[in-house]
């Protein structure tokens, strides 16, 4: 067994713990590589089936081909897709020019909270990773949020020997992070090994640009790259990278503690 098997086995264990312990669970699918790998892992864990719905929060500013890819994959993989949108904020004209953090909070965080309330989900499975950025590095596999969706990162439950926090006071909901321990390169190596179909925005176009992390069109920048397929991305990451994965994501750079502020309030 190699390191990808180790990662896969641990993620499957976590997904199965989540499914057993929380009945009304949803999986957040951003259409990006991480959550797509997670949906794949769910099908591994449950022998070809993904028993929980996949929630996509559509800010309406997503890159159009993301929506196309989403609908195609949902059909091919037989996924139960739930799309959430903060229509009220959009009707009132919310966009990134009103401030990136304000926009993220309204369209993503609030959009997510609306779906969760409407569907009564008590748990959410997310494809965040520790190596993405500093705040996420502090996460637990099973991470509680209070009724206001807030994250008390100063008083987190201990996690030892894969015994997770599975009982809560009423009003708490749980976030579960099955690929928390993976790195960006691990994700690409796994996509390579498993031949998982990934949206082509990650591959370099004619102008030598590709996306390394996907988000809304106005706030996501492409990087210079020659990597035209998965193999070349793996090589690129192994050899060339000196910048961080989310460097193309404008909201992170808003201020020093942007991600922490967003995440304490319930951002994914």
């Amino acid at each position: 067994m190699d390191h990808l098997d180790d990662l896969e086995n641990q993620s499957i264990f976590i997904l199965r713990e989540a499914y057993k312990n929380f009945k009304n669970l949803a999986m957040l699918w951003s259409i990006g590589k991480d959550s797509t790998v997670m949906a794949w892992l769910a099908r591994k864990a449950f022998f070809g089936y993904c028993p929980m719905p996949l929630v996509h929060i559509d800010t309406s500013y997503k890159i159009p081909s993301m929506i196309e890819y989403r609908d195609k994959m949902a059909k091919e993989w037989g996924l139960n897709l739930v799309v959430g949108q903060n229509k009220k904020a959009l009707d009132e004209g919310m966009n990134h020019e009103m401030g990136r953090l304000v926009c993220c909070e309204a369209l993503k965080t609030q959009g997510l909270q609306n779906v969760m309330e409407e569907k009564g989900y008590t748990g959410l499975i997310l494809g965040i990773r520790r190596d993405e950025e500093g705040t996420r590095a502090k996460e637990r596999y099973f991470s509680p949020r209070d009724k206001n969706f807030e994250w008390d990162f100063k008083d987190q439950p201990p996690e030892l020997w894969d015994q997770f926090k599975t009982t809560f006071k009423e009003g708490t909901h749980i976030r579960i992070h099955p690929i928390l321990h993976w790195t960006e390169l691990n994700v690409w190596e796994y996509i390579q090994r498993e031949k998982i179909p990934i949206i082509d925005l990650y591959f370099a176009n004619e102008e030598g640009k590709r996306y390394r992390s996907l988000g809304c069109a106005p706030c996501t920048g492409a990087i210079d790259s020659k990597a035209k397929n998965v193999d070349e991305i793996v090589d690129e990451l192994k050899n060339n990278t000196t910048t961080s994965e989310r460097s193309g994501r404008a909201q992170d750079q808003e201020d020093t503690y942007a991600m922490q502020k967003l995440r304490a309030k319930g951002y994914m």
Binding site: H3, D131, E133, R136, N186, E189, K238, T241, S244
Partner: peptide, 11 residues
């Protein structure tokens, strides 16, 4: 921490 994306061949 994070962002130390330049560790080569983390495979």
């Amino acid at each position: 921490m994070n962002d130390n994306g330049n560790v080569p061949t983390l495979s």
